[in-house]
Computed example of a mutant assay.
Amino acid sequence: MTDTLDLDLRPVIAEQPNPLLFATVSGAHLYGFPSRDSDVDLRGAHLLPAADLVGLREPEETRSRMWVRDGVEMDLVTHDLRKFVRLMLRHNGYVLEQLLSPLVVHSTEAHRELVALAPRVLTAHHAHHYRGFARTQWRLFEKTGELKPLLYTFRVLLTGIHLMRSGEVQPHLPTLAGRTDGAPGYLPELIAAKAEREHGDAGVDRARVRADVERLHGVLDEAQAASVLPAAPTAYDALHDLVVRIRLQG
């Protein structure tokens, strides 16, 4: 972890109203392009008591909290285990990146079991998630010209390509830039610029980056068509059993 993440986050875990099954660092730190003033995005899953799910009141399945600790802005978002697993089964690459993040703040046996089942959730349809995310970020870049959405555009396209080709969820842009054939050679320069400032103009040749983004969309399409990943998750029953068992254990 970077110095920004050299924080004692145990009090954060202890303060949560329900047990956390895991908490990891996501966002720019996970993607490999944090700025000096980047906030720390914590993501994870909590466990509601069974009574909260069988009564009349709607359970608080998603919790979000923002605060400042030791001068660093923190952002914690967690889902109840059932909702988190349902998101896993919906071709949601974002929650899989959170689950598999190597920047682990808190872990349990349930977390380790989810990680073990994650490969059986991956499908060729995850390409749709990354394709859609890239288009959203590209529209934001075209509107603002800022570096951050441009890096996100390249990051999700390369993550999708790598996933389709290898079956591995890899969200770290510097790693992807070095491993992916056809990754733009200027990405290390953009990553270095992002380290200096969280916001600001990308200062790039828009026609050039537009051509590269369009080309990578084509590469993602080809990678999806050639992928050996299955069409549907194979871990549904195992995940169902896990959710029931963990819930009853409390």
Rank of each mutant, 00 (worst) to 15 (best):
A183W: 00
R43I: 01
D39N: 05
Y31L: 11
G250S: 07
R43N: 08
D181W: 00
Q224M: 15
L140Q: 13
L5T: 13
G185K: 07
D8W: 04
G93L: 01
K143H: 13
D8S: 04
V209A: 10
A118E: 11
V209R: 00
K143R: 14
P34G: 14
A116E: 15
V243S: 04
A183P: 00
A195C: 08
S107N: 08
A177P: 00
Q98F: 01
G93W: 00
R131I: 02
L216Y: 11
A45L: 02
R36T: 06
V68H: 12
D70S: 10
A14P: 01
L100R: 06
E222P: 00
V244P: 02
D221R: 02
A195Q: 12
L216C: 07
T78L: 09
H29T: 05
I161W: 00
P119Q: 09
T108A: 11
Y94A: 14
G160K: 03
Q224K: 08
V85S: 04
E61V: 03
G178W: 06
H240D: 15
P19F: 02
V219Q: 04
V54F: 06
S227L: 05
H162E: 10
A231K: 07
L103N: 09
T123F: 05
V25N: 02
T2D: 15
L239H: 02
M74N: 03
R57T: 14
E146V: 01
H79F: 01
A195Y: 00
Q98Y: 01
L96V: 09
L7A: 11
V115L: 04
F133I: 07
V169L: 08
H240K: 11
A211K: 13
T234G: 13
L96G: 02
E15W: 06
A124C: 10
H46V: 08
F154V: 04
L187H: 07
E113Q: 15
Q249S: 14
L53N: 09
L248M: 13
R247G: 06
A231E: 15
D41I: 00
A124P: 02
A207L: 13
A14V: 10
H199K: 14
D221N: 04
K194C: 05
L100K: 06
H111G: 04
L89W: 04
V104A: 13
V12L: 15
G93P: 02
E97R: 08
L176K: 01
L122V: 11
L147S: 02
G145W: 03
F84N: 00
